[in-house]
Amino acid sequence: MRGFLTAKGLIGAGIVMLVLAIALLAPLVIPDRMATAMDMRARLSGPSLSHIFGTDQLGRDLFFRVMLGAQTSVLIAGSAVLMSIVIGLPLGIVSGYYGGVIDNVLMRLVDTLLSFPALLLALTISAVLGPNLTNTIIAIGIAFTPFLARIIRGEALRVAQMPYVEAARAAGTTDFMMIVRHILPNIMPAIIVQGTISLAFAILAEAGLSFLGLGTQPPDASWGLMIQASRDYLDVAPWTALVPGAAVAITVLGLNMFGDVLRDVLDPRTAT
């Protein structure tokens, strides 16, 4: 546990907790009108005492919009990663633990899916289903599944070959109990680490999708959407892009730092 007590661990955990707190609390604390109130006289005004992060093209306060955008971004990224783990976990375990024909077929499919860039896959699915919040989750979730299934399969395979699994089999443990008692607990650290890193990628993916107009749609507010809206005003009001961009970057940085430290603590084999 000492790994968390490094600068990296503390900063990473701090950022992650801060973003989570904002995502959960901002919608309760900040009245909706603070973020939607348009002040046409203060359109595209720079950071000042009354608007500390400045305002957007409709004169809305960027500070409050970024705070409220956190909820959407975190919700989408979290649900998408959860979805890919929920699909990828059984696939990966079955493939890695049982091996054989199932493994061959599943992994051939997964390898092929990995030829599709995740962002392209997510964009295509989102475009085809019609972009909205739910479909963005589905799109990112599906796009990330092959990657997670592959990782989980590799871990399950590694654990299935450990002597303690053989010892348990020799002691009469059934396949089901083997997975529950031995496989799952031993692949959990890797899943937690990969889940954290995937969360960072999912935040980026959501921002990318929304930036291209194929993710979250107004009136939902997300960071990617804010950056998209800023594109036409880059020259006159660069802060409209930089503020939500920095929010994405800091969140992803925090997740990556947290993931690195988690990996050092939980999964020393793959430590970088």
Binding site: L204, A207, G208, I227, A241, G245, V252, N256, D260
Partner: peptide
């Protein structure tokens, strides 16, 4: 490097344009 992997591409792009 950690900061580098955490910044989205379009963020790099916007910064470079600016």
């Amino acid at each position: 490097a950690l900061i580098g992997v955490s910044l989205p591409d379009f963020f790099w792009g916007i910064m470079l344009i600016l």
